[in-house]
Design a protein around this nucleic acid. Sequence first.
DNA 1: CTATCTGTTATATCATCCATATAACAGATA
DNA 2: TATCTGTTATATGGATGATATAACAGATAG
Lengths: 138, 138
Amino acid sequence: MLIQIDFSSDEAIYQQLCNQIILGIATARYAEGEVLPSVRQLAEDIGINMHTVNKAYTVLKQEGYVKVDRRRGAFISVETDREAAIRQIGKELRILLAEARCRNLDREDLHAMVDLIYDEYEAAPGAQRTAGGEQAPE
Amino acid sequence: MLIQIDFSSDEAIYQQLCNQIILGIATARYAEGEVLPSVRQLAEDIGINMHTVNKAYTVLKQEGYVKVDRRRGAFISVETDREAAIRQIGKELRILLAEARCRNLDREDLHAMVDLIYDEYEAAPGAQRTAGGEQAPE
DNA sequence: CTATCTGTTATATCATCCATATAACAGATA
DNA sequence: TATCTGTTATATGGATGATATAACAGATAG
């Protein structure tokens, strides 16, 4: 699963977990339909409490990154409501760009940073997202 | 000062304060050298505790947005270390772009969002940032 | 049916953080 | 001296994060 937690970080453990799984989806390291480890298994693997993992899964479920099947457990299932995504990302982007503008970074600087990070994600091992991959269990 | 706090938000009050001041700087509503209200005054204005305002000012000071002069109080003074800014913004941008990519937003979508927000900031009342305006007190 | 796996829920405890309150201190200013 | 500034100290109530123990319902393999 390759999850690395920084216990000295001021960022909550469950939040770090969420971020790493989202990062894993973005770099296609986790594919649509792929089953996540059970809360107990993952908790044991990285040496944290079961409820901390459960909280991360619950948040990821609410935010539309995973779903739960009684039979298989939690699996990757990304909701792609374009308008909702733009609204949510835009909200977070607003404060980030305010910081950038205070530091005299112009829009070209930001475009370059976006491209750099997108290059990084697309170059990740096993990364060819074709906007498909639906095999939801029924 | 035009500060609006959402008391039902899950975002900390001092954090909302920081964000609004940073937003104010980005839209040139607050200029370099401009004096901020005293912690007691601003606390009374928006109906919160003095220490909450003090915490916001302390954070803004640490992050290089304001400085403090014994005689005048806190005033806007933005540190623009380009490399440090790129490093810090980039770190926050990484998780945000991961979310965007999961939702099938491509780099052109992000460029458009960046431009839209930058337009918004540049069109703000009294916004012509000429990267100058240094009148530090001595 | 039994044993074992899955997520989920209910408590409880401890530490940390947020916001509040009261109080005081040092420097600057009129 | 009186009044403003930021700053510090201490305390309290509430919320959150992480832990722990325990139990429950659904699914599955034996």
